[in-house]
Design a binder for these strands. Structure first.
Lengths: 231, 231
DNA sequence: GAATATTTTTAGTCTTGCCTAATTTTGTGG
DNA sequence: CCACAAAATTAGGCAAGACTAAAAATATTC
């Protein structure tokens, strides 16, 4: 753990807001598949124009944040990847902060975190991380990259996919409607809650579960499809 | 207190980062004195060019955030003042957050708060305020504007100016050297700490005080000059 | 109140990051 | 491999917000 301050500092050069958004999008496009990352794909993700993207790709190549070959598409350099992961780290940590400390709801945090992720300070992410108790996942169940830029390759699934008899941990929700969130509150389910899948009922695909090793409860398929967990 | 949500919403139109910085600077220049706020003064405060300022003043006039007459200088409209105060409110609340929750030191918080003050979300300031326990002052001893845009007109002074026999409350520091901050820690003095001024020694202007009604301690004039308090 | 100094304003540029339209390159199907 | 479709690129522009240099307006001083 101790070398991370040095590692962070190499990756903490300041980029413009726009550059940061490109890096983030390129990172996300890159892990999704081994599909070529093209200017068009980036333009779609950023809701802008391929011509604008080509402009920016040149800048990012100059700054050695990406590699770009027409035939192979875009690829982050180590430097670019580090920057992208730091932004994602900050985004997810701020989401946890907004949810847990400021009592925002799961569907409100993303938009604010989109702004907060661009705050620059060498120690900010690590201090926030510590303050929040080193959370592993954000409210959407996505893993938070470590200070050194490692990200758990979590096998995230939905409750209805869990094997009978196994215990899983809630990492997020797919549905952020207030009716769902209220139901969760009623069942005393939050992030990190341990749920054991007792039995699946073939008739209507409802699921019998035990929350926090408590008494058995039956929930609907819709419910079990909306809860993100990992085993 | 209850009407503040309505009041806030009228003032929460989104301005550009640059506009927000102009509003803030104009506000600060305006309360300092009844001196005319000129393009030159604003340019100095923003470290930019009077010509640039004139450009921006036109925009701010168009948006009804300021009034501007060559002879009388710049003045914030009610709308502009409300926006400025919300920015200052956010700035000071974030400073408290950074100091108290993320354990930044008193001299580090300003720069980060300069970025955080521009995060836009209708409920953010109020939620942060609540989370922090409705602090009255930021770490520099400046009052935090209320949700409705009221700002206490605090009579801030230094410890050495306090009358003998009176009790005051620490609101900030003038010196942020680590030696001073460490000394404060040793004396168990932080923001909000109550200090009673027992006696002033004419010989060297040192001061006998009681911290939190504890035993008397003597501190130097330098120390008493560096501690911001209000009575 | 004229002369001078200062301040304000105008005019014209620059950079960033976006746009549209046109062109070139690449890829695909027959 | 030719024709056509799709994607990438170039060229030329625009808006925001800064700049410099020069002109106009205002203040100050004798």
């Amino acid at each position: 753990m101790f070398p991370y301050i040095y590692i962070m500092s190499t990756g903490s050069h300041i980029h413009t807001l726009s550059e940061e958004n490109y890096l983030k999008v390129i990172y996300h496009l890159g892990k999704d598949a081994k599909v070529k990352i093209s200017p068009t794909a980036i333009a779609e993700a950023l809701n802008n124009n391929p011509a604008s993207v080509v402009d920016m790709l040149k800048k990012l190549v100059d700054k050695k944040l990406i590699l770009y070959e027409k035939t192979k598409g875009v690829k982050l350099t180590d430097k670019g990847k580090k920057s992208a992961l730091l932004i994602i780290r900050k985004h997810r940590l701020w989401e946890v902060f907004l949810l847990e400390k400021l009592e925002y709801s799961w569907d409100e945090v993303h938009e604010i975190a989109e702004q907060l992720e661009h705050i620059h300070n060498p120690q900010l992410a690590d201090r926030l991380d510590k303050f929040l108790g080193f959370p592993q996942y954000d409210p959407h169940g996505d893993p938070i990259p470590s200070a050194s830029g490692e990200m758990a390759d979590i096998y995230k699934t939905i409750l209805s996919e869990v094997t009978e008899g196994r215990t899983c941990q809630v990492v997020g929700v797919k549905d952020t409607s207030s009716s769902f969130l209220q139901y969760l509150k009623k069942l005393d389910i939050g992030i990190g809650t341990k749920i054991t899948l007792i039995e699946k009922i073939p008739f209507d695909n409802s699921v019998i579960v035990s929350v926090k090793n408590g008494p058995n409860t039956t929930v609907s398929k819709l419910f079990a499809d909306s809860l993100l967990v990992h085993e």
